[in-house]
Simulated scan of single mutants.
Amino acid sequence: MPDTTLDEQTDKSAGPIIHLPTKVSRTSLIENGMLTLNEWGANHICKVCIANSGSCCRDCRHLLDGVGCQRRNTSCTAWLCGFHKFLLYEVGQLEEWNNFWHQVPGQDYREDFTPEYIVIDKALRRQKQTMEHLGEALAADLQEMERSHIAIGIIITLREKLDKNIDQLTTVENDPKKQIRLRRKIKVLTSGFERFHHLLKKYHEQQADVISP
Results as ranks from 00 to 15, higher is better:
residue 36 T to Q: 10
residue 36 T to L: 15
residue 38 N to A: 07
residue 38 N to L: 08
residue 40 W to E: 00
residue 43 N to E: 14
residue 43 N to Y: 09
residue 45 I to Y: 03
residue 46 C to H: 13
residue 49 C to R: 05
residue 51 A to T: 01
residue 52 N to D: 04
residue 54 G to I: 08
residue 55 S to D: 02
residue 56 C to R: 01
residue 61 R to M: 09
residue 61 R to T: 14
residue 67 V to D: 02
residue 67 V to K: 13
residue 68 G to T: 04
residue 69 C to W: 00
residue 70 Q to W: 00
residue 76 C to L: 07
residue 78 A to D: 01
residue 79 W to C: 13
residue 81 C to L: 04
residue 82 G to I: 00
residue 84 H to W: 03
residue 86 F to P: 06
residue 88 L to I: 06
residue 88 L to Y: 02
residue 91 V to M: 04
residue 95 E to S: 14
residue 96 E to L: 09
residue 100 F to N: 02
residue 101 W to V: 10
residue 102 H to Y: 13
residue 103 Q to H: 09
residue 105 P to M: 06
residue 106 G to D: 06
residue 108 D to H: 10
residue 113 F to A: 09
residue 113 F to R: 15
residue 115 P to W: 01
residue 115 P to M: 05
residue 118 I to M: 04
residue 118 I to P: 03
residue 119 V to T: 14
residue 120 I to Y: 06
residue 123 A to P: 06
residue 125 R to F: 11
residue 125 R to P: 08
residue 129 Q to P: 00
residue 134 L to F: 06
residue 134 L to A: 04
residue 134 L to M: 06
residue 137 A to P: 03
residue 138 L to M: 15
residue 139 A to V: 10
residue 140 A to M: 09
residue 142 L to R: 03
residue 144 E to R: 12
residue 146 E to C: 08
residue 146 E to Q: 15
residue 148 S to H: 11
residue 148 S to V: 14
residue 149 H to N: 15
residue 150 I to P: 03
residue 156 I to D: 08
residue 161 K to Q: 13
residue 162 L to R: 00
residue 163 D to A: 07
residue 163 D to R: 10
